[in-house]
């Protein structure tokens, strides 16, 4: 009997319900418009959701520890600009000419990591609320992104191969897909199999337990900010390559889109366990919604409205499910 209830348990699991929502959304659009249910369109959907998923992987971990990162959008823009600048102009101040792609990539990833360090220092050393700390860093990052090329976009002078990782395929599989797939796999492993993932869950779920087990929450949160910073930088590189230009205004509002995807995926702002899979489905739901409405020739502005409705609806749903589960446990615990 216990087995049976365990088997059916996934039916009420938030991620599964989310998946049903995703399927229903797909069915709805498939029946509403002939343009939606096509392989090429799905390729598009995945492409559109790439950055959300990649950065969302890091943000899921952060939010499990009760933190969040609003600087990912401007971090992405800064990386996009710096990467473009380095491969087109190099570092003029030091008399260094255009850098090769890999070298520029490494520098950008380091800068992304440093932004993560800045966030982490503010949150862990200065005891900032993550919301305020990363908001401040968001402004700084956006300003620097604009300052990189005097507020202008970089549109020409890119070396050969610049567009490859963002647009080309290998054996018919776009590089972007490979990156997303790798990110999902790596972070799922990090989540389930490594110390970092386990300790992140422990910190978010029960601070006292983490303390008595000798964990160091500050160190773990710092690492997660650095990882998220690097992921945002990587997404910036991919964006530059995909658009074939460096745009300092890219990624505006991106931080909130990621936040919504992670929240939809069932990771609460109050910390505790979340899942990478949930975040992925959350990202897909947001993208499918936009894409499907587009295909139906419904104004794209509706998707902003729907994003809001879905966000609030999902949070209410998640909190209800969580409360129900907790009540069931309490009822089971104290029958007396």
């Amino acid at each position: 009997m216990a087995n049976k209830t365990n088997k059916l348990k996934f039916l009420t699991h938030p991620t599964f319900i989310l998946f049903l929502v995703f399927v229903a959304l797909n069915l709805f659009f498939a029946f509403s418009t002939p343009r939606f249910f096509k392989l090429s369109n799905y390729m598009n959907i995945i492409r559109q959701s790439t950055m959300i998923m990649i950065v969302g992987c890091g943000c899921t971990f952060l939010m499990m520890t009760e933190s969040l990162d609003l600087s990912v959008g401007s971090n992405l823009a800064l990386s996009c600009m710096v990467y473009s600048f380095l491969v087109v102009f190099g570092i003029p101040g030091l008399g260094i000419g255009p850098l090769p792609l890999w070298a520029a990539g490494i520098i950008v990833l380091i800068i992304g990591g440093l932004i993560g360090v800045l966030n982490a220092v503010l949150v862990t050393r200065f005891d900032f609320e993550p919301f305020i700390a990363t908001l401040g860093v968001m402004y700084i990052g956006r300003g620097l992104a604009l300052a990189t090329f005097d507020g202008k976009s970089i549109r020409t002078g890119f070396p050969d191969g610049f567009e490859v990782i963002g647009n080309d395929s290998i054996l018919g599989v776009p590089y972007l897909f490979i990156f997303v797939f790798l990110a999902i796999v790596i972070f799922s492993i990090l989540h389930k199999k490594t110390l970092l993932g386990k300790h992140a869950i422990a910190i978010g779920c029960n601070k006292n337990a983490a303390f008595f087990s000798g964990l160091n929450p500050k160190r773990i949160v710092t690492r997660l900010y650095i990882i998220t910073g690097c992921l945002a930088a990587f997404a910036g590189i991919l964006t530059a390559s995909r658009l074939e230009h460096g745009d300092p205004r890219t990624g505006t509002g991106f931080e909130f889109t990621v936040l919504v995807a992670v929240l939809l995926g069932g990771t609460p702002l109050s910390g505790g366990n979340g899942t990478i899979l949930g975040t992925v489905i959350g990202a897909l739901i947001i993208t499918v919604l936009g894409n499907g409405l587009n295909a139906m020739d419904i104004l794209k502005f509706w998707q902003i409205v729907f994003k809001g409705i879905i966000l609030i609806g999902a949070i209410v749903l998640h909190s209800q499910l969580r409360a129900r589960r907790r009540n069931a446990l309490i009822a089971a615990g104290t029958k007396a």
Binding site: L122, F126, F128, I132, A133, L135, G136, V137, M138, Y139, I140, G141, R142, G143, L144, A145, L146, A147, D150, G151, P248
Partner: peptide
């Protein structure tokens, strides 16, 4: 330039806190 104003705004927020 206006973009340094964004940087300044971020710094100001952090300093204020």
């Amino acid at each position: 330039e206006h973009f340094y104003q964004e940087v300044a705004r971020g710094l100001l927020l952090i300093i204020a806190v």
